[in-house]
Design a protein around this nucleic acid. Structure first.
Lengths: 197, 197
DNA sequence: GTCTATAGATAGATAGAC
DNA sequence: GTCTATCTATCTATAGAC
């Protein structure tokens, strides 16, 4: 019998990521102490340093990991047949992905300022890569200003994570439908059935 | 000769508000120490406590003051003749007000979590009052979901403060125009000249 | 890999002189 | 109203035993 089939990262490593993510999202990076994380994980403070050399390194890992997964998830989406469907696909993908990972998203948008310069630059690069996906799609639309429209759409979609709670009045699918329509409306596409159907 | 015409709040009190606002917005409430504020103001740490009993009280003052001014500013707007113009007016007002006060806005949306329960409740009440202005306007539109549309619009508009910098590619007026159009598009109003004009 | 113990720095807040 | 000095608590991080 092999010894618990070489599960890497140990159980503690995973718990550190899970708990610190939740704590950072709830209280903010600066407001969370290593002690709080250790207590949530159920180990002593110094045990954390076997997995991450500094508190900053832990944050960097969480943020980088999230952005890389997000980019990969989008790149694995099938190619849409036209630009209108591509925009709808992006809106739906963004909403779906983000409301299932509210903590990661909140951190990624809010705690970039807690990063030291080099780490900030690296994360900013990843975020720009993701935002470029939307900007590229918008290139085929006739817009007043592409960059601002992209920022407006991202703000609108990402804002959903600030109020969405599972088990609320609307299902994730319904929310996705509504936002998809709002985004298409934004860029002047109203060819489908009227909004109140 | 009167002694410098009873300017209340002293020069220090004003400087504390100005500097702490900037520091909180830049680094986050938890990451800013009373020492950092004192240094920025140019006084010793203990001098701060002549004006605010705790760090939390200082944050509460900044947030409450901002929300009350925002609500008052909207209430002083003239009444629009119809619901479409009312929505356009709200969009323009919100953008105009928020991009001129990016620090206050950022704080108000990000540091509610740093508030103790009672303070949080009070601020949340003020925010709900403001958001109700938009919800009321949207009552006259035919929408899939009024509440979500309101949240989407607010997210879109408020997001502008995260990237807007004075002296950038576009003037505040141009940005206001673009966002006003985007908001009207969102709710299905496309009666004006096409977006690319 | 986790523990106890602790170093060294810094936090928010206070006391009392001026 | 501001200062210097200081209290107490807590912070990140490390050392060394097991």
């Amino acid at each position: 019998m092999a010894r618990t089939s070489g599960s890497i990262g140990s159980k503690t490593a995973g718990a550190i990521r899970t708990q610190s993510l939740a704590l950072f999202a709830d209280h903010g990076y600066a407001a969370v102490s290593m002690r709080m994380i250790a207590d949530a994980v159920g180990v002593g403070v110094s045990a954390l340093y076997n997995h991450y050399p500094t508190k900053q390194a832990l944050l960097v890992h969480l943020l980088t990991d999230h952005m890389q997964r997000l980019i990969l998830a989008w790149e694995n989406q099938p190619t849409a047949p036209d630009h209108i469907l591509a925009l709808e696909q992006f809106a739906r993908f963004h909403i779906r992905y983000h409301i299932t990972k509210p903590d990661e998203v909140f951190l990624s948008y809010m705690e970039l300022r807690a990063l030291e310069p080099d780490n900030f630059a690296a994360l900013n690069h990843l975020r720009n890569r993701y935002e470029a996906f939307l900007t590229a799609i918008l290139r085929d639309f006739d817009l007043q200003d592409r960059k601002i429209t992209a920022m407006a759409i991202l703000g609108m979609l990402t804002g959903a994570t600030t109020w969405y709670k599972p088990g609320g009045r609307l299902s994730a699918q319904e929310i996705e439908d509504i936002y998809a329509r709002l985004v298409l409306n934004c860029v002047g596409i109203t060819t489908k059935e009227p909004a109140h159907v």
